[in-house]
Design a protein around this nucleic acid. Sequence first.
DNA 1: AATCCCACCAACCGCCACCTC
DNA 2: CGAGGTGGCGGTTGGTGGGAT
Length: 227
Amino acid sequence: MEDIKKGAWSPEEDQKLKSYIMRYGIWNWSHMPKFAGLSRRGKSCRLRWMNYLRPGVKRGPFTMEEVKIVIKAYQELGNRWSAIAARLPGRTDNEIKNFFHTHLKKHLGVKNDASMKRNKRVPKKAKKNDEMTNDDKPSPDHRVYDITCEDQNQMMMNVSMNCFDQAIITNNNLEINPVILERNPETTSVEINNLGCQLCHFEYPHPCTISDFDFFHQFDVLWDAQL
DNA sequence: AATCCCACCAACCGCCACCTC
DNA sequence: CGAGGTGGCGGTTGGTGGGAT
């Protein structure tokens, strides 16, 4: 039985892998570790290279711009992390996935649902519309809420929802874009009413709680709400 | 100071599409 | 066409560090 090492990579292992790939390139992940002098599985080497050692990999906190791109891409693509990563040069699918699960998931109404089916990879041959299964279609299990921006200048919104009476969001120095709450662009609309108020209609996949909206806290959000 | 709790994230696992023979 | 191998992907786990008690 081969002694395969697991767990965190040492600087020596990193150096071995990096030097080997720089010199010989990537030819076969499953055979490469032996030639590179590593007691690792090929998959482990690939992951380490793709996520950390590969030139151009970007580290550090996500910028607000990157966050917006992730949210928008998630709304369009779902949990296709590699496709989302393609929109963020330097960021890896694993990093985006981790960031999403730790920072964004609850704000976008994504539940930890054991019944949630694994999101199958999209074959290179695109699906036709009439080939869509029920799994591809929007879930009927959602709630509909309306957000009304009462005063665009003061960036104050009156959020009326069936899970609490009223919430007031204030923002003094940054733009608030209610579209950021969009769950599904096809079911979301933004319009200006006859009083000049901005109306954002969106669909959320489950009954909301205050915590679903604390994403706004980074905009100095004040809540005045009754749960 | 010690312990507990929780968020974060690197890395592993298993599934599946694609490729080659 | 089917079987087997490989690589890519998403879900999940487990170690770690920092804050709370």
